[in-house]
Design a protein around this nucleic acid. Structure first.
Length: 253
DNA sequence: ATGTCACAGTCCCTGTGA
């Protein structure tokens, strides 16, 4: 079973790239972040024609997360069941694997209220995962907006005093992993940076100024069944790319 | 370090978010 996660930075703007990528890679499950659409605009029918059922938690202008599946889609949950109005979290069961698509808040700056919101959001995610059914495989994928270690950042000195690399953010990721989850890309490629995002500005992609902030966290038993994983940096090239690229994994289920 | 992209509304430019 092939599972991927991709922050598309507007499914409206990215539709032709997403359609092309789905045809080329044919993942069984794709976790999408930043659809920036409501349900009325979401391409349910076009995705069905490609063989995918969809669950979407949309918000219109900002955020928006989705789960696409060729292998079943049931028990959908949207959000954490609290009063958070931002559409950043959706879960479903696909082929007996519990999957979650996460769009973690950016944080903006360490002294910005959005940073406290980010840490609180990550704590809510940890609590949900700590209470999960341990008999079921789980994939927690998405844009975490945190580079878990210095290897995941092209130049940590540039980010000193900023978000994405701060110790509280990294501790929040470790706390999520401590519920019994493995960072799949890092586990399978311990020495490669494997950046997943490059700023649109400054020619960052061609200069190699990237971060690894898009993650697939899986339970150890599922990690043992992983046969391959890769970051599809080809998706950052060509016409109208997202600033993020897909992270893909194959499991022998 | 900020050279871009996407969005909505003020609507062909500007403010906001990333």
């Amino acid at each position: 079973m092939i599972v991927a996660t991709w922050n598309v930075n507007s499914l409206t703007a990215r539709w032709s790239r997403v359609e092309e990528w789905l045809r080329a890679k044919s993942p069984d499950v794709l976790l999408i972040q930043e659809t920036k659409q409501n349900d009325e605009k979401y391409p349910f029918a076009a995705l069905r024609a490609l063989g995918y059922e969809s669950a979407h938690y949309g918000q219109g202008q900002w955020n928006g997360v989705a789960i696409l599946s060729k292998v079943g889609l049931s028990d959908v949950v949207r959000g954490f069941g609290d009063d958070d109005a931002e559409a950043r979290f959706i879960g479903a069961t696909c082929a007996d694997v519990r999957v979650y698509s996460c769009y973690v808040p950016n944080g903006r700056a360490l002294d910005d209220p959005h940073y406290a919101y980010k840490l609180a959001w990550l704590a809510k995610l940890r609590d949900l995962l700590a209470a999960r059914d341990r008999d079921q495989h789980v994939v927690v994928g998405g844009d975490f907006n945190v580079a878990p270690s210095d290897l995941d950042c092209y130049d940590p000195s540039v980010f000193e005093g900023g978000t994405h690399v701060s110790e509280p953010e990294r501790e929040a990721i470790r706390a999520i992993e401590a519920t019994g989850l493995v960072d799949l890309t890092r586990s399978m490629h311990p020495d490669e940076a494997n950046f997943t995002w490059w700023d649109y500005r400054n020619g960052s992609f061609h200069r190699g100024w990237g971060l690894r902030i898009d993650l697939l966290l899986v339970d150890p038993a599922l990690r043992a069944k992983a046969t391959s994983s890769y970051v599809d940096r080809e998706a950052r090239k060509g016409e109208k790319p997202s600033d993020h690229v897909p992270v893909v994994a194959d499991f022998a289920l």
